[in-house]
Design a protein around this nucleic acid. Structure first.
Lengths: 348, 348
DNA sequence: GTTAGCACTCAATGATGTTGAGTGCTAATT
DNA sequence: AATTAGCACTCAACATCATTGAGTGCTAAC
């Protein structure tokens, strides 16, 4: 059986209508709404064929048809038209860039929020990850009469401060020198590089202050781990409740449970393989618990080669073209923000 | 009509039963389950009185009774018994202290999570707030060939780093001196204190590097604002779905919408006036949207006098005594953690 | 190949009856 | 005077049944 032009038109009509209404679409509806110049009976015949071919499904005998996962697949691969964002949408997109973004995690939070507002779906974003983070700068600074600050910066300008309580705070100049000295020893190392030998060296250099060494090392380790761990931001989970496919509270609850597990989210985002927009429809997802959802992912890149992933999760009956447009727009946008963040006057 | 002992016993039975089952409680149920030594008919008469007095309500003619807000009020004020936490619960409480808590916001996140697990309600926590934050330490550090780090610490050891891109990075010693100098000028100031005069002074001291001044000031301002802004952590919102009172998806959705507005949460937590545990039942809440929820709040104090608030939100049919116990236990716990955080080797 | 027409299916809706938990009242009992 | 047994009454919840209408598949005519 050939998938002729008319069948495609009908399939497209079914999908469009179903995305808009969430109601099974019948032959009469199509005949009336989309004037394809054929009668409902003919459409009926074609629909029967489309069902046989697996593109549409009849939820029960006397109902209209709804697209199957395969139908959506055909749609996103061949039928979907590029949607232009409205000026309002574009403006909202850009608002992320103009708010005072000072920290990457805040930027991600904001980005997730804006996308979820624009699409009404659930948004997952992973922060850019630095693997094998190298120590870039380590410094000691005075804080007050009983504590000093240890600042650790790693690759990708991931910076953390740690407060170390000490019985005696060295004099400012001395502290500066100690910091410099530690910095010279550890600069360029990864955490794994810090071996007995280096520790001994540090101990010798610190002289009478060597007792702070354990805290110092533990703080450095923490920072490195932080730089290497994947942070996932989630927004718009509540949107799920608005979709009729989740009006059953049980379903909503079980999806919420899935979304609460950070490792699951990470897995989900890591399914994203190439750099393009990737669409996983319903049963194509490897996770059992989202077998009736679709996930659209894409990556954004920072100047230094690190990448993060943005994912959007919604019912399979999703406005794919809208989501793809928003994603493309947003990636462009945050890439330029990140660029500015690295190139300009900004802070972490 | 007097609220005699027997009426109180019956009211208590009704409340206990309703908290446990969420079903209206009938006279026969009470007669059977709680052997008060009187017949259901007598209980019926007493219940009729209790209803007249406003402590219980009949949702419809042929149903049992449920406690009114007034009934709950009487309960929490006079009837509620202190609950001891089980060893398991205590252990979970303490687990917050033992996980490697390095940042206040992470501690709060963790605390909120544990409380929501223990109570199954929704938890709001506000971080301790520092008003009129004074600058405590300001330092400049080298980062790489094109950027320097500005570190700003305020009262309450709130520390932020900012990356400043510069065309020429001053030599390490020079940078250190510039930092020291800025620090000497600004130390102890609030942001408001920085006037024309001080700016001029800074400009003079920075000499050829004075062009970084605008970025510098803006970064300092940001930090101070951050120290003074209220962070609210939210956990266990999804728990709401488990309660029969929210099985109507519309209600759940509208509550979620309320919880999404940070300013609403802040208002909610600021209702907490004294330092004791405070219970607001149903219509006692000033917010219209949570008129059928109860909110229990309490404060925790840090050594330096700053305080934060913990709030728990659930249906009016809440296990008040359990929540109060958990709250009391947790406050004791995080106060000691915060103490340790300030006194010991830790980081921000 | 297309379409009109018709029989058939089935979810959704509404009407109707039944059940059971619960009440209030009254009269008898303590 | 307080308590209780008994009974009539109410009403949500549930089940049953008929009706409706959207939708299909098939057949015969165009």
């Amino acid at each position: 059986m050939a998938l002729n032009d008319r069948k495609i038109q009908i399939l497209q009509a079914i999908i469009n209508d179903y995305i808009a209404t969430a109601e099974p679409v019948g032959s009469r509806t199509i005949a009336k709404k989309y004037n394809l110049g054929i009668s409902s009976a003919t459409i009926r015949n074609e629909m029967s064929d489309l069902e046989e071919m697996g593109f549409i499904i009849q939820p029960h005998a006397s109902a209209g048809r709804i697209p199957s996962d395969l139908g959506y697949r055909l749609y996103v691969d061949r039928l979907m038209q590029k949607k232009e964002l409205t000026p309002q949408e574009q403006q909202l997109l850009k608002s992320v860039a103009t708010t005072n973004i000072s920290q990457i995690d805040y930027l991600m939070e904001e980005t997730a929020k804006v996308i979820s507002i624009l699409t009404n779906y659930t948004v997952l974003i992973s922060e850019p990850v630095f693997t094998g983070a190298k120590l870039k700068q380590i410094r000691l600074l005075p804080l007050d009469s009983e504590s000093i600050i240890l600042m650790v910066a790693t690759d990708g300008n991931y910076i953390k401060n740690h407060i170390l309580k000490v019985s005696v705070v060295p004099e400012e100049k001395k502290l500066f020198e100690m910091g410099s000295c530690i910095n010279n020893i550890l600069k360029g190392c990864t955490v794994e590089d810090i071996d007995e030998c280096i520790i001994a060296l540090l101990k010798r250099e610190l002289q009478e202050y060597s007792y702070i060494l354990p805290m110092l090392l533990s703080a450095i380790q923490k920072t490195a781990r932080g730089a290497e761990s994947i942070q996932v931001h989630l927004s718009g989970t509540k949107n799920i409740l608005a979709f009729p496919e989740f009006s059953d509270i049980q379903r909503a609850k079980s999806l919420f449970q899935t979304l609460e597990q950070k490792d699951v989210l990470i897995t989900l985002l890591q399914e994203q393989k190439n750099d393009d927009v990737q669409i996983m429809i319903g049963s194509e997802n490897s996770l059992q618990s989202i077998k009736d959802c679709s996930v659209i992912t894409t990556t954004y890149k920072m100047g230094n080669g690190t990448r993060g992933t943005i994912g959007i999760l919604g019912p399979t009956r999703m406005d794919y073209s809208q989501v793809v447009s928003v994603l493309n727009g947003m990636v462009k946008n945050i890439e330029s923000v990140l660029q500015a963040l690295v190139e300009n006057k900004n802070d972490t």
